[in-house]
Amino acid sequence: MLCIGEKLKSIWHFYADGFRNMTWGRSLWVLIILKLFFLFAVLRLFFFRPVLSGKSDGEKSDFVGTSLIERTEQVIDGK
């Protein structure tokens, strides 16, 4: 029986050897990394900042509650 340390080591080697011996997979990994970089370092950072981020749960409730009520007023009171 292998001890936990040896098991982890063999898992590590399994992945390391797999990545080392990759052929066509290398270009796919480059593509994946480029895509993740674009998603998180460009889109997330500059274009898709969550509107409610940085607020506590209470503040989020107030923010959305107020927004839903304002739109209520625009519709109901506008009639």
Partner: peptide, 24 residues
């Protein structure tokens, strides 16, 4: 490999474009 994480963009859109929905 190319399809991986394309679904994440939908989650970005929920948080930014559809925040009332996301919370509701």
């Amino acid at each position: 490999a190319v399809g991986i994480a394309t679904g994440l963009i939908l989650e970005f859109e929920f948080g930014t474009n559809w925040s009332n929905y996301s919370w509701f």
